[in-house]
Amino acid sequence: MAATPINASVRYYRRGTTKVLWAPAIANKNAISRAEINASTALEGETGAMGGWQTTSATVGTPALGSRFTPVVGGEITAADSSLTFWASKDGDDVRTLLQREDNGFVVWMDEGDVEGQTCDIFPVTVTSQAKVRELDSAAQIMAQFAITSEPAENVTIPAA
């Protein structure tokens, strides 16, 4: 008998689908409420780039004198340095008024959109900087950098609207 194949994915293009929110408060990061989603600010309309926003796990060797092979077990979980880059406004009325250095909150990633029953990832963060991106031949941008302050909640079910 052949092995059961993995489910076929329904592939999608991230732009125009993914939602990213700034939530100033979430009571339980493992169970976001519709009220908390509605109280958030949608960032995707002004987001021009992103970096990080993923967790990785290290491994720890567990050698034993009785074997030359060293098995490993899961170790620490870390999150990559993360940022969102936004378009700057010539009048200064842009992300700089929303995400200020040392603000605490949550960045919520709804990769498949704000769809009931789909999942989101919730990153507890502190804003660490608002770097002005200065490029000769590009539109002006602001890069908000974030420290991820505790373990993100991954694959949290999005509640009904």
Rank of each mutant, 00 (worst) to 15 (best):
E102K: 14
E76C: 01
G105F: 00
I6K: 15
F106L: 01
W22C: 04
R101V: 07
T97R: 15
V133G: 07
Q100M: 07
D111Y: 08
P152F: 00
Q118T: 10
N104M: 05
A140T: 07
L43H: 01
E44K: 03
I32Q: 01
V108I: 09
F146I: 02
D93S: 08
I6M: 14
E151K: 13
V125N: 03
I26A: 03
F69V: 15
G51K: 10
T70Q: 14
T62R: 15
L99P: 00
I158P: 04
G74R: 12
A31Q: 11
K132H: 08
A3L: 10
I6E: 14
G92S: 05
E102V: 08
G105M: 01
D121K: 03
L98F: 02
D91G: 04
V115H: 03
D81E: 11
A25S: 15
I37V: 11
A139T: 08
T78N: 13
A153M: 04
E154H: 04
M110E: 05
I148M: 03
S83L: 09
V133I: 14
A160W: 07
A131W: 06
G74A: 13
T85N: 06
D91R: 06
I148H: 00
V10E: 12
K19L: 09
I148F: 01
A139W: 07
Q100P: 01
N28Q: 10
R68H: 12
T55Q: 14
M1Q: 10
T59D: 06
